[in-house]
């Protein structure tokens, strides 16, 4: 246990130090007048916090709610589809190809269509968040189910396990490392999807807050809001990583291999 904690600290300290160094460097550069007007000093951004705090909480709650719902929808859908691919192996390739195709369609291109179909508002945000998070989740689930050891499959056959027992006792645990890798990657994507949907035009949510402060050239407030988004995404990632370290105790984290944007 203490070894794990030490590993966590060891992993957290260097990036924290680098972040601190960047912050101090920026402060110094700003003080020397080396930075353009569009890049505020960290202290200027921090000074925004008290006046913007209520706004951040209000808009942040909206964004988080949409992102979470979209994330949950995407995860359920991905698991369901991957289970279908697991049960009917012939469908695996078509399902994955379809997902690849959907993934390389720019969300931005289809978002306006969804505006027409479901209107502006929370439903739109949830839909776009779900679409943004869906692909890595599906790939992770399919990969995870594919990672089942062949000998294990034969063993479960020999001991006459039912389909349901195979899913619960073999397929899902085998897939868990991959699922968590995908869940970690998908969380920031769901947040980003919500943000994009909010940028489409709404007066609530962090996306709206960013656009408003951007258009009123409120530099510090823009930075603060975006930093909040980054913090939220890091928080989501960290939370899932924490759950993962509690649940998946038998192996190191699998490498998901799919980047965010």
């Amino acid at each position: 246990m203490s070894g794990a904690r030490q590993g966590l600290i060891g992993a957290l300290v260097p990036p924290m130090l680098v972040l601190l160094a960047v912050g101090l460097g920026a402060e110094l550069a700003k003080g020397l007048g080396l930075l353009p007007i569009t890049v505020p000093a960290p202290s200027q951004v921090a000074a925004m916090l008290p006046t913007s705090f209520d706004d951040l909480m209000y808009h942040g709650a909206r964004t988080v709610r949409s992102a979470l719902t979209g994330y949950a929808v995407a995860a359920s859908l991905a698991l369901a589809l991957a289970s279908v691919a697991l049960a009917i192996r012939a469908l695996e390739r078509p399902i994955v190809s379809m997902a690849v195709l959907v993934d390389c369609i720019p969300i931005i291109a289809i978002a306006p269509i969804f505006v027409i179909w479901i209107g502006q508002g929370p439903h739109l945000h949830v839909t776009v968040a779900a679409i943004a998070a869906f692909f890595p989740l599906l790939v992770g689930a399919v990969q995870g189910f594919r990672a089942i050891d062949r000998n294990m499959e034969e063993l479960f056959h020999v001991i006459a396990a039912s389909r349901w027992q195979r899913l619960c006792k073999l397929a899902v645990p085998s897939a868990l490392p991959y699922l968590f890798a995908a869940l970690k990657i998908a969380a920031p994507l769901a947040l980003l999807g919500t943000l994009i949907a909010e940028w489409m035009g709404t007066d609530r949510g962090l996306g709206a807050m960013i656009v408003l402060s951007l258009f009123s050239f409120d530099v510090a407030r823009t930075w603060l809001t975006i930093l909040t988004v980054c913090g939220l995404s890091a928080l989501a990632y960290g939370l899932i990583a924490l759950i993962e370290s509690r649940v998946v105790t038998w192996t190191g984290p699998a490498d998901g291999g799919h980047g965010g944007r």
Partner: peptide, 18 residues
């Protein structure tokens, strides 16, 4: 097999790691 009369041991131990 369905009456659980067969025991099988593989070359690699094939244990469930979890």
């Amino acid at each position: 097999r369905r009456k659980h009369e067969i025991g099988f041991v593989f070359q690699e131990a094939s244990l469930l790691p979890w």
